[in-house]
């Protein structure tokens, strides 16, 4: 009889769980909930497993011109309104200067012309959005590793942080500018480029003009658009929300290979 009561109780719990629906687990949305910390630890396992299976330089699949079937779908910011960006846009980005600094021997300041004069790389790849959709487009630009070699990264540097012109939201302290970070392994990957051209034309504003990042083995939110500056850092704990990116500060995983 006791066992029977136990079974009834168990069944009742299950039934009520399904009836109250999934509000039961809404506490998991709380970034400070310890249960969420346990769950998100699986992302570290994912990162280690994928890096083990990939090796350093395994390439993302590349496609053909025939696979470019539609304009690249823009997402996130599509028309930044920061005053400095609007001024640059008005002048066709002639006055744009990318700065690369932080833990490097030789900080760089580069115009778009300087960047275009460097060795160029073109790749037709599939952009995978965290939302679930994919879109194939052709990207042209300079390998990030080329810039890192020119700047001579100091041994202390572990991450490249990308600061952007666009702000998706405005907080109490003003506009929340987009930023992202990747580790040096991703930064030096052969397909990681700073793209200024898309589908054979200058990068449109909606897709991140004048310069955006391509990190082909990860999801779209890692690929910062409207890049203003790049900083090499030993860690990103002290930067903004401390999680390494705009979306990471809002609960998304830093490693976005999945």
């Amino acid at each position: 009889m006791e066992r029977r009561t136990l079974l009834r109780l168990g069944a009742g719990t299950l039934a009520s769980l399904s009836l109250t629906g999934c509000k039961t687990f809404d506490f998991l949305s709380n970034p400070d909930d310890p249960a969420r910390d346990v769950l998100i630890s699986a992302n570290r396992l994912t990162e280690r497993a994928q890096r083990l299976l990939q090796g350093r330089d395994a390439l993302a699949r590349t496609y053909t011109e025939a696979d470019i079937r539609q304009p690249m779908r823009p997402n996130g910011s599509t028309d930044p309104q920061a005053a400095d960006y609007l001024a640059l846009k008005k002048a066709g980005f002639a006055d744009y200067r990318l700065t690369l600094g932080g833990a490097v021997e030789t900080p760089l300041t580069l115009s778009l012309a300087d960047i275009k004069a460097m060795p160029q790389q073109t790749q037709i790849t599939r952009h995978d959005c965290v939302e679930g959709w994919s879109c194939i487009a052709k990207w042209k630009g300079v390998r990030l590793s080329h810039l890192l070699d020119r700047a001579r990264v100091k041994p202390a540097a572990r991450y490249a942080v990308f600061h952007c012109f666009d702000a998706l939201t405005t907080g109490l302290s003003g506009p929340q500018y987009y930023y992202e970070s990747i580790d040096l392994r991703s930064a030096r990957h052969p397909q990681t480029i700073l793209a200024w051209s898309m589908n054979g034309a200058p990068l449109p504003v909606a897709n991140g003009a004048p310069l955006r990042l391509r990190v082909e083995r990860q999801l779209g939110y890692k690929m910062a658009k409207y890049i203003k500056s790049i900083t090499l850092v030993p860690d990103f704990a002290g930067i903004r929300g401390g999680k390494g990116g705009y979306w990471e500060d809002r609960g998304y995983e830093w490693y976005a290979g999945v």
Binding site: C22, F25, L28, N43, V130
Partner: peptide
């Protein structure tokens, strides 16, 4: 509908955190 998702409100980040843990 909200009764069929975890969390109940639209929250992709948390959905992914939950999904990948239980996938492992």
């Amino acid at each position: 509908p909200a009764w069929a998702t975890i969390p109940s409100e639209q929250d992709l980040a948390t959905g992914r955190v939950v999904h990948f843990f239980f996938a492992w």
